[in-house]
Computed example of a mutant assay.
Amino acid sequence: MKNIDASQQKILDLYSNYALRNNKKPLNVFTFCEDNQISETDFYFYYANFVQLEGDYLRFFMNQALVLISEEENYQAQSAKHKLLSFYYTFFEQLTMNRSLIIYLLDSEKNDLQNIKKMWPLKKEFQIFVRSLEISEPMMDNTSESMAKIERFKNKGIEELYWGHFMATLKFWLDDTSSNFEKTDIFIEKSVDTSFELLDVKPLKKLVDLGKFLFNEKVKNNG
Rank of each mutant, 00 (worst) to 15 (best):
M1E: 02
K2W: 00
N3T: 07
D5H: 06
K10Q: 09
I11K: 01
L12Y: 02
Y15E: 00
Y18S: 05
R21D: 11
N22R: 06
N23F: 09
K24T: 13
K24N: 12
P26M: 10
P26K: 06
F30V: 12
F32C: 03
F32L: 03
F32S: 04
C33A: 10
C33M: 08
E34P: 01
D35R: 10
N36V: 05
E40Y: 01
E40A: 00
E40R: 14
F43P: 02
Y47G: 05
F50P: 05
V51R: 10
Q52L: 04
E54D: 07
E54N: 07
E54R: 11
D56V: 07
Y57L: 08
F61Y: 15
I69M: 07
I69N: 03
E73H: 12
E73I: 14
N74E: 13
N74C: 06
A77T: 12
Q78R: 13
Q78D: 12
K83Q: 13
L84H: 09
L85C: 08
S86E: 04
F87I: 07
Q94F: 09
T96F: 04
T96R: 13
T96E: 15
M97Q: 15
L106P: 06
K110C: 04
K110F: 04
D112C: 06
D112M: 05
N115M: 02
W120A: 08
W120Y: 06
L122Y: 05
K124W: 00
K124R: 06
I128V: 05
I128A: 04
F129Y: 13
F129D: 01
F129R: 01
V130F: 00
R131Y: 08
S132H: 01
L133T: 02
E134S: 08
E134W: 00
I135W: 03
I135Y: 02
P138Y: 08
P138K: 05
M139A: 14
T143I: 11
T143D: 12
E145D: 15
E145A: 14
E145P: 02
M147V: 09
K149Q: 14
I150A: 14
N155E: 15
K156S: 11
E159Q: 14
L161K: 12
W163P: 04
G164K: 07
H165E: 08
H165P: 04
H165C: 08
A168W: 10
K171E: 13
W173K: 09
W173S: 09
L174Q: 08
L174W: 09
D176S: 07
D176L: 06
S179N: 15
F181C: 08
E182K: 15
T184C: 09
D185Q: 15
D185C: 10
I186Q: 15
F187V: 11
I188A: 07
E189T: 12
V192Y: 06
D193L: 11
D193G: 10
S195V: 05
F196H: 05
E197S: 10
E197I: 00
D200W: 00
D200N: 13
K202R: 13
G211D: 14
G211M: 06
G211E: 14
G211W: 01
K212S: 03
F215R: 08
V219A: 09
V219D: 10
G223Q: 11
